[in-house]
Design a protein around this nucleic acid. Structure first.
Lengths: 195, 195, 195, 195
DNA sequence: CATGAATGAGCTTTCATTCAT
DNA sequence: GATGAATGAAAGCTCATTCAT
């Protein structure tokens, strides 16, 4: 009963995650989600009152999973290098895992106020979590540093989603690169007679 | 004649830029663009054969303007610091200018193959332009550095679009911050007995 | 359930037959069919994926009914005169029955490949059925005779559709006339001193 | 001047005949006719006040040509066989000539009252002309005989339009067949011990 | 006369949502 | 709870027709 209810809820969330992530919010039809999940269209409306609600729920679960994972990983103290590595690694590995279904998650409905609030809240939480970690390592202007670091991670996430044949080595290379960049700035060519 | 035709074309492109930028592709109605421009719906279809075509044209013009501006700005040689500053300044000032109408430009139709090709091409061009500038300044792994720098600029662009009361001083602060970050890495607190 | 589903399907087919038959394909609006049937426009699209599909289905049913009737009527052997009478009688009575709704059935969409195939197939079937009946009665060149006979029936069908006050007697007269024509050729005035 | 006007008028009529005949009334766009004729869309409206008017004019000219030709051919007296042959030959050769552009002429707009009147009038004229010719040859019930003969010619006209590789020999065969049919009725197999 | 940019009524079709079963 | 037939508002797009140049 209760587990059956829960099972169907998870089935819907899982299916919706895949379909929304593959086609984007606007190109996804409720009927597709229902078909893919093997249930009736009407059933979706027993669990979520609208397409927007469902999308929001899917997004929320994804964000919660993500933040939980990051909090777990970075809860233990470490050097700046260690912490940056943990953040980058968590971020990129997470989206690497679900890369097949995240291609079009940047298409979100923009009229939905509740979702917009949630998105802002997530970004704020994520940002502050990273900022606090950086601050603990002695970084000044932790907010700007945090945002910048996430910006770098986001473009690397796009590499994951868009690059044909992107593999784990590529992932590791980018993690190391991002950490190195934030430790020492751009890596320059060794120049004769300088330094 | 020719000017009249050109005028209406520009009127449509300008209006479409505003409406698409304010509401996103999917939430924009062709009738809204027509109404806003003070012309008939059918007229839009004299100039563009579909909503997607119009969106693509708007996007292309925006990208071309942007790249032209950047190429002009960064054509003269300079130190790494100068070049990073020029790039950041061009990027952020450009979107600061049009901030009112770019809020939802990240909503693009994802079924349109031609547009997708164009988007990729633009990103590639932009990336390579920046990479070549960095390489000229002696930066190793110019592609990754370029992508990272653009990632940072993108999150700052989001700050422009989303932060209530974001002003020119905030803009300048972020430009300086980004340049400093890429020159030297994270700025740490001066620690007793160190440095 | 099943009966309800079937009922609505038949309701749509019946209504579409009337409206298409009265106004022709191009002058018929899907909304008219829906209104006439007392259902919503969208419901039509549950049963038929397009206007063309609906038209094709209507046409197919009509043709199938017609051929079934003819096959039933002419299955028993008979003299040439009897068979010609059966064919003519079936053809003309069939369209006499539905004369109110067949006025404009000769307006069919011409871009629809599937429908065109079906139309040809129907004509071929009809023709061959008649040809085989004639051949069994010892008629030479059965294909040409069959086509000719159907040509005569078609102009008489037009009489049914277009003649104000066309009644059953007129029908019978034409049936007899067609049979007589194909038995003996034109009926000439008895000429003095001849034959 | 006058000739120039006439030239353009004929250009339009000729072009419209081809396009309407190839695609049918409803699938023909006024812009197609204009493009095909190498003139502007607006120019069509200097000569014809509407699409229906143009179609009607095209049809009228076709019918007038046809009737003139038939009247000329069958003006001289002759035996029934000769007259039937002249009618069939005129009818089928006429449509054989324009077979490329008559494929979809049976698609006519059905809301246009004037056109409908004209169509009926043409059919009536044609029918009566043939009926009078037959009557002059001593045929009883000339109206029904005329209609029947035209019915046969119409299905053979369809053969012309629809049969791949239909040639002049096929034409002659059908003319002879139709005449023979109306002279003597169906041609039967010679049966042993009969006749 | 000739043009073709502009119009806008009106079409087919879609799809989130409802609700009787 | 589950279903899916039914809904109908709303969208993109077409194209005959007009009229200023």
């Amino acid at each position: 009963m209760s587990s059956a209810h829960g099972d169907k809820l998870y089935l819907i969330l899982d299916t919706a995650f895949k379909v929304f992530g593959t086609k984007g919010f606007y190109e996804t039809r409720m009927s597709e989600i229902a078909d893919e999940a093997g249930i009736a269209k009407g059933t979706l409306y027993h669990y979520f009152s609208s397409k927007e609600e469902l999308f929001t729920a899917v997004t929320k679960r994804d964000h919660d999973n993500f933040l939980a994972r990051l909090e777990h990983t970075a809860s233990q103290p470490g050097s700046l290098e260690e912490q940056l590595t943990r953040i980058a690694s968590t971020h990129l590995h997470y989206y690497y895992q679900v890369r097949q279904y995240t291609r079009l998650f940047f298409h979100v409905p923009n009229n939905d106020h509740k979702l917009m609030l949630h998105m802002r809240q997530f970004l704020k939480q994520y940002n502050e979590l990273v900022a606090s970690l950086l601050q603990a390592c002695g970084v000044l202007q932790p907010q700007l540093h945090a945002r910048s670091f996430l910006g770098v991670l986001e473009v690397f996430k796009m590499d994951i989603l868009m690059t044909e044949g992107f593999g784990e080595e590529d992932l590791q290379q980018r993690i190391d690169f991002a950490v190195q960049l934030f430790r020492h700035g751009c890596t320059l060519q060794p120049q004769a007679g300088m330094e």
